[in-house]
């Protein structure tokens, strides 16, 4: 058996991964898991003052991790992040687009502000488009993959976060379309729909006091996920050869909270 396919092995040895929004939360959890599986990881972070310490912490743990400043609402920044990754490591095997603007608190459709709409679309949709364009030639060369973050809100709608639901739904079908377009190039595109305790989730709990209780009520496994221990392995799997025949798919990593797929 190919040693690279053994579960629990270093599934990403020699691979290079770029993670947007990698300074904390889900991004850092996935980056850490991928680095632990042997990947060289670049954290693309809007603020160097948070991204650099995160990268330094992982380097101290023996991982090959660096940080590049990147505001995903800037196409130039995304191209720079991709170029810096390839310059540093010679290749790009996986791009994880995880960054998104703050969701804010519960909002009526009638009350959504233009700047909230613009921020959500810019970080989730436009950044996927610009990031995909920048990464495509390198992913094709490496036979790599792209991972987008979606949400059960995009699949079942959300009474409290209608714009978030829209952009997450759009990202999921965006992944399917890219999977169809890029399959011939040997590039896979998949989604993860997580629920995990992150700084962003903590803010959401603050803005919506009943959110945590509702999430737990609907989660058969009875807890909220962990970015490193629960979501990280899903990212490792999708980036690895273990998932080499999977594309256009969504992995729900939410303790069974959404069972509609």
């Amino acid at each position: 058996m190919n040693p690279g396919l053994v579960p629990g092995g270093r599934l990403l040895e020699g691979r290079v991964v770029l993670v947007t929004g990698g300074a904390s939360g889900l991004g850092l959890g996935m980056a850490t898991a991928m680095a632990a599986h042997g990947a060289a990881v670049v954290l693309a972070c809007r603020r160097s003052e948070t991204g650099e310490p995160a990268a330094a912490g992982l380097r101290e743990a023996g991982h090959d991790v660096r940080c590049v400043r990147c505001d995903v609402t800037s196409a130039d920044d995304l191209r720079t992040a991709v170029d810096a990754t390839v310059t540093a490591h010679g290749r790009l095997d996986c791009m994880v687009h995880n960054a998104i603007a703050p969701t804010g608190g519960p909002t009526r459709i009638q009350d959504v502000a233009q700047d909230h709409w613009d921020a959500m679309v810019a970080t989730a949709i436009r950044a996927t488009f610009e990031g995909a364009r920048a990464a495509h030639p390198h992913l094709r060369e490496a036979g790599g993959s792209m991972i987008l973050m979606t949400s059960s809100a995009g699949m079942e709608g959300s009474a409290s976060l209608p714009v978030y639901a829209m952009v997450k739904a759009a990202q999921r079908t965006l992944a399917k379309g890219l999977a169809a377009e890029w399959g011939a190039d040997g590039i896979r595109v998949n989604c993860i729909a997580p629920v995990a305790d992150t700084p962003a989730m903590e803010r959401a709990y603050d803005e919506n006091p009943v959110l945590q209780e509702r999430l737990l009520e609907r989660t058969p496994l009875g807890r909220i996920g962990d970015p490193l221990g629960d979501v990280g392995p899903a990212a490792v799997f999708l980036a690895s050869d273990m998932a080499r025949f999977m594309t256009g798919q969504t992995l729900c990593v939410d303790g069974g909270g959404f069972l509609g797929l």
Binding site: G157, S158, A159, M166, R172, T173, G177
Partner: peptide, 24 residues
């Protein structure tokens, strides 16, 4: 999804989510 219509398909799915959110 659809090759050649990635953006349009994505928008359409976003709109489906809007219909669900508005319903709720």
């Amino acid at each position: 999804g659809a090759a050649g219509f990635v953006g349009s398909a994505a928008a359409s799915e976003g709109i489906r989510a809007l219909a669900k959110s508005a319903a709720r």
